[in-house]
Nucleic acid binder design. Structure first.
Length: 416
DNA sequence: TCTGGGGTCCTAGGACCC
DNA sequence: TCTGGGGTCCTAGGACCC
């Protein structure tokens, strides 16, 4: 972690990532519109974007807009390798790299400037390294905050670099449409426009209470802060995945109850395997469901203890699915009424399998702090001083307070 | 052309505890 | 007995991101 006033942050973003990899590997595709993915557009080259093709667009619509485009099947393993190579280049410049996705990351280069030169220089070197070593175009935004660096890289695309001068941040930001802000999607944009807010400057000038009134307390405050370039979030190179999941779109064919159960079982097996491979356990299972009317439903259950066992996770997912397809009126009743076009599962509440649970009982005269101290000593004795524990007080049994729910070696330390 | 697959974070209400 | 505030955890749903 690192973030200070005067920090220098880069947002590095590969241009049209999947499509660029295809153009790199097949010279015939260079300079031509390329669409990756047939059913739905996963990525498209800038030549295709000029025809109006966008990612997530339906494939048939994309081909209509851009009839001469070359459509290629995605090659996920190749993209994963390319991503890995690019991130290795990032780490050559700083250890403070926070991945956002396969093709995007924040880099805190504050301490790297005396090694590699000023930030704009680092950004230029980064782009050269990625282009020469991996063969992919990279856009970079440079600023003092994460969010502004992200906005800058968006403005720098394609294949560009944009350094927001610390003295001119608001001059850069305020004329831009509110849609450039991270967290403003279609719904929020419409609400803002309805209130006469079209640019980031409009947002900065509006009252916090007004914004919170129609966006909610968090979003209202957050967006207004961003409009004033207030973004204290540090570049976090130690982020861990919070959840892990898989889903399957099923098209329009009517599915039977048993088909859906098999589908969910296979998803559960797949994600459980990933969970074990990542050496993680999960505590909450969620089953997601999409009806023929494209409505989303979900059911979730939190287990008493985190696990990585396929059997338990799959059985839980199955029960949750049955709740969705049966409803209160018996087997398949709800399914018959609403149909199903997608099922998915998510495991969340992820933790390390070596996290432990300790429960200690207060001695009659013991004080809570003494018990906590003994627990901390116990934990350190077993796992070293680097271990982190969380503890809380729970319950009275026969007048004797008990300590429960200690646990989670990688959770934050709290006391009291 | 009926619309993929992988995630993150927030909200609101209810249960439960002190 | 009644009222209630503060806090956490869980669930369902929604917005948003790449």
């Amino acid at each position: 972690m690192s973030a200070r006033r005067g920090a220098t942050i880069l947002h590095a973003d590969l241009d049209a990532f999947y499509a660029s990899v295809e153009q790199r590997d097949d010279p015939r595709l260079r300079g031509r519109p390329v669409i990756v993915g047939g059913g739905v557009v996963l990525a498209c080259s800038y030549e295709a974007k000029r025809c109006g093709v966008r990612s997530a667009m339906n494939g048939a619509q994309a081909r209509l807009l851009c009839p001469h485009a070359v459509v290629v099947e995605p090659r996920m393993e190749v993209y994963a390798d390319a991503s890995k190579a690019v991130f290795e280049r990032f780490h050559d410049f700083t250890p403070f790299v926070e991945p956002i996705s396969v093709d995007e990351a924040f880099l805190d280069v504050t301490g790297a400037e005396h090694l590699f030169g000023p930030a704009a220089e680092i950004a230029a070197q980064l782009r050269t390294r990625v282009l020469v070593d991996v063969g992919l175009p990279l856009s970079v935004g440079v600023a003092r905050t994460k969010f502004l660096a992200k906005v800058a890289s968006g403005q720098a695309k394609p294949d560009g670099i944009l350094h927001v001068d610390p003295g001119r941040e608001l001059d850069f930001l305020h004329p831009l449409p509110v849609e450039v802000l991270w967290g403003v999607g279609p719904v929020t944009a419409t609400k803002l426009h309805d209130h006469g807010i079209d640019t980031v400057g409009d947002l900065a000038r509006s009252g916090r209470a007004d914004l919170q009134g129609y966006l909610g307390p968090h979003a209202g405050r957050h967006l207004r802060d961003l409009a004033h370039n207030l973004d204290p979030r540090p570049v976090d190179n130690a982020r861990r995945d919070r959840s892990m999941g898989a889903q399957r779109a099923l098209g329009n064919r009517i599915r039977t109850r048993d088909e859906l159960r098999r589908e969910v079982l296979s998803l559960a097996e797949k994600v459980s395997a990933r969970l074990r491979k990542a050496d993680r356990v999960a505590r909450t299972v969620t089953v997601r469901y999409r009806t023929q009317e494209m409505k989303h439903e979900s059911r979730s259950r939190t287990l008493v203890e985190p696990t990585q066992q396929t059997g338990l996770l799959a059985a839980t997912a199955d029960e949750l699915l049955l709740d969705l397809v049966d409803g209160p009126h018996g087997p398949g009743a709800a399914l018959g009424r609403k149909g199903c076009t997608l099922v998915g599962i998510t495991f969340s509440g992820l933790g390390r399998p070596d996290a432990v649970q300790l429960a200690l009982r207060f001695p009659e005269e013991g004080r809570a702090t003494d018990v906590l101290d003994r627990m901390v000593d116990d934990i350190r004795g077993r796992w070293g001083t680097g271990a982190v524990a969380r503890a809380s007080l729970m319950g009275h049994t026969g007048g004797v307070p008990t300590l429960a729910r200690p646990t989670a070696l990688d959770a934050a330390h709290t006391s009291g």
